[in-house]
Structures are given as structure tokens and as C-alpha cells.
Simulated scan of single mutants.
Amino acid sequence: MNPPKMSSAGIGKGRVEALADGIFAIAMTLLILDVKVPALLPDQIDQLPNRLLQLWPKMASFVISFLICGVYWVGHHALLHYVRRSDRTFMWLNIAFFLVISAIPFSAALIGEYPQQPTAIRVYCGNLILAGVVLFGQLRYAAGRGQLYDQDIDARFITSAGRRILMGPAVYLVASLLASVSPITSLILCGAAPVLYLLPGQVDQYWKNGHRTTIQEDSLVK
């Protein structure tokens, strides 16, 4: 069997993308496993509506965490789209990212079980902050020291993408700081964060127009 091809320019990114898809698929599937079907005796069937209602914290945690994982998957996919090669450091940065993503089912189960506990909220927010920070680190390394991006990529795209990545961690940091004051506000902020990424921004304009097209100056404030 011939060894994998490696050039002086670096190594391929295909294995990183394959591992990413597998990690995200497993993590997103594990989220629903914390939502258990109520176990009722035959004479307790009339309690089913109330027991289902009691599941709302876990269900909310599942939906929000699933969307957040989706946001990070899209962000990671977008980051790798313009990476023309990989290297050892970049691969280990991805391993660190996958480590944090793999912990989301645990932190999501924790906040689903103890939604009013500041400690649970801080663990959850800390998990999501780390995911965003590591993803941002990948972007900066690929665009800077690693020189892994296309040479003609617009530098303003990198700046814009970096700001977009850090929006989530900024919201989660505020949510974490408010956990002791108002847990419900923290939960609302966590739920609102992924909605920010559903709104189009200048990064979407870059994709739409093609990566050789520069971002308009006035779009940088959006």
C-alpha cells in the first residue's frame, strides 16, 4: 500500500473534514438521549401530560444545543472551505475543537437537569465559549502563521469571519456573568445566540459573490 501523499506545501484536509462530520453527527445525536420517555405504570397514564411538561428544560436544552452545534458545524465547514492544505498544528487545533464539541452533550444534560443553577449555566456557557475561541484560533492560525488559505483571499473576509465567530462567545460570556443574578436571562441569551448566526452577514455576501470578490466597505459594519 502506498503511503499518503505529502508535499512540501503541506498535507490534505480531507481526513479533518471527515472526522469533523463524524464528531458533530455523534455529538448532535447524543443530545436527544438525555430526553427520556416518562416511565409510567398503567394506573398513572393520566399523568403523562404533566410528566411531558416536566421535560421542557431538557427539551429546550436539546433544541438550543442542537442549533448551537449546527452553528459551529457551519462555521467549521466555512473555515475549511478556503483552506487549501493542512499541517500538524492545524490538525491538533482541530482535535482541540472536537474535544470541546464532544463535551457539549454533557454540559447540555447538566443545564437540562439543573436549569436554575448558576454553576450548571456557567459550565454550559464555558463549554460553548471554548468552542468559539478554539474555532477562532483555527481561523487566525490558518490565515496567519499557518498560511493555509488561498493567497487571493480578501483579508477583510478574515476579519469579518473572526468577528462573526466571536459573537457567540461574547453572548455566552454575558450569560455566564448573569447566571447568579438571573438564571432565566442567561438561558434566554443562550437560546438567542444561535439566532444571530441565522441572519445573513458580509460573510454570506463573500460566498455569494465568489471568493475573489472583495467585501464592500460598508458591509463590514453589519
Results as ranks from 00 to 15, higher is better:
residue 24 F to S: 00
residue 172 Y to I: 07
residue 98 F to E: 01
residue 147 Q to F: 10
residue 82 Y to Q: 00
residue 78 A to K: 12
residue 215 I to S: 01
residue 55 L to H: 05
residue 98 F to P: 02
residue 140 R to D: 12
residue 11 I to V: 15
residue 103 A to E: 09
residue 177 L to T: 02
residue 135 L to F: 12
residue 55 L to G: 02
residue 28 M to D: 00
residue 48 L to M: 11
residue 181 V to K: 13
residue 18 A to G: 11
residue 91 M to L: 12
residue 99 L to H: 10
residue 127 N to F: 06
residue 188 I to P: 02
residue 17 E to C: 08
residue 56 W to M: 10
residue 10 G to H: 11
residue 141 Y to W: 07
residue 25 A to E: 00
residue 5 K to W: 12
residue 115 P to K: 06
residue 75 G to Y: 12
residue 134 V to R: 01
residue 62 F to C: 05
residue 187 L to K: 08
residue 110 L to E: 01
residue 104 I to V: 12
residue 54 Q to Y: 07
residue 113 E to T: 12
residue 207 W to M: 09
residue 146 G to E: 06
residue 41 L to Q: 12
residue 18 A to Q: 09
residue 46 D to V: 03
residue 52 L to M: 11
residue 102 S to N: 06
residue 185 T to D: 09
residue 136 F to S: 08
residue 23 I to V: 13
residue 59 M to F: 15
residue 162 G to C: 11
residue 78 A to Q: 08
residue 159 T to W: 14
residue 32 I to A: 10
residue 63 V to L: 15
residue 134 V to F: 08
residue 206 Y to L: 06
residue 107 S to K: 04
residue 46 D to G: 00
residue 179 A to H: 05
residue 154 D to A: 02
residue 63 V to D: 04
residue 19 L to I: 15
residue 21 D to H: 13
residue 158 I to S: 09
residue 92 W to G: 00
residue 102 S to A: 15
residue 24 F to T: 07
residue 42 P to Q: 09
residue 154 D to F: 00
residue 71 V to G: 00
residue 186 S to E: 07
residue 182 S to C: 10
residue 220 L to A: 04
residue 39 A to V: 02
residue 128 L to E: 06
residue 121 I to C: 07
